[in-house]
């Protein structure tokens, strides 16, 4: 995974740097700017565009694939939001590179029936781990400071543009907790002592992965000279909880979609 992250970032940066060092203005149609809009000042194409994005979203932190020990799932999105700055560096009439800095809040609640699933729960002040059968409620809320690194493609003659790339994110704060209820836990092993569980809570907040990396896809449509509407899908490739965390037998990944508007400065 680290190799993938490293290669992606190096590829992006090397493209970015190679072009930034170039002195020539990228050749574009003199008469038109991207998006096919007539340009008042045909002689200067903005090499760098800036925008401020604001948006809302929904999504989930989910194991992939969903293990067969989980069934009867229900999911409730928490309000998710994004506020960010993006910079687009033009390579040619179609292509560009995008980066920026964004504050991103994600969250969800999920309820599921689980069957002999390894987990940990804190009962009073004692930590119990084992194989739980019953109902599980999980709540996740986390805020990340994230840097997207995107290749940007604008479709000439339309208002549309698409971006694809990766993001790297640092967790600023987060909560991962919930409860297990109406079931039983086999202590330590599936054949361990059986303990009935009425309602016990767990809190894995300390186990949230401080670093997140993943794929980011974006679609954007220009509404006016300054305003655009956009849609993002971010799909984390690093798990939501630390790799070293043993309290769940599967890894969960953040998959969130956002839509919003951006003001192009």
């Amino acid at each position: 995974m680290r190799k993938i992250i490293f290669i992606t970032i190096v590829a992006f940066l090397s493209t970015f740097c190679a072009n930034a060092q170039g002195t020539d203005t990228t050749s574009v149609h003199k008469e038109t700017l991207p998006f096919g809009k007539p340009c008042g000042d045909a002689h200067s194409i903005p090499k760098i565009e800036h925008s401020i994005n604001v948006g809302v979203g929904i999504g989930a932190s989910s194991p992939i694939p969903i293990p067969n020990r989980i069934s009867e799932m229900s999911w409730a999105p928490h309000p998710c939001g994004i506020l960010g700055y993006r910079l687009r560096y033009t390579l040619n009439s179609n292509l560009g590179l995008k980066t920026g800095l964004q504050l991103q809040h994600v969250g969800m609640s999920a309820k599921a029936k689980v069957y002999q699933m390894f987990t940990q729960a804190t009962v009073e002040d004692a930590e119990v781990s084992g194989y739980f059968t019953g109902y599980n409620e999980t709540k996740i809320n986390a805020t990340y400071l994230s840097v997207p690194l995107l290749f940007s493609y604008k479709i000439i003659g339309t208002d549309w543009g698409f971006d694809a790339g990766v993001f790297v994110a640092l967790k600023i704060q987060g909560h991962f907790g919930g409860a297990v209820k109406d079931g039983y836990i086999r202590i330590d092993t599936p054949t361990g002592d059986r303990a009935e569980v009425g309602y016990e809570t767990f809190n894995f907040s300390k186990e949230l992965n401080p670093f997140n990396f993943g794929l980011l896809f974006s679609a954007e449509r220009e509404i006016s000279q300054h305003w655009s509407g956009w849609l993002d899908l971010s799909w984390a490739l690093t798990p939501t909880l630390k790799d070293t965390f043993q309290g769940l037998e599967y890894k969960m990944y953040n998959i969130y979609g956002f839509f919003g508007i951006s003001y192009n400065l």
Binding site: I64, P65, N68
Partner: peptide, 12 residues
């Protein structure tokens, strides 16, 4: 990609 087969019972 989900494996929706009934999981094996681990209890004995």
């Amino acid at each position: 990609s989900c494996n929706r087969e009934t999981p094996e019972n681990m209890e004995a």
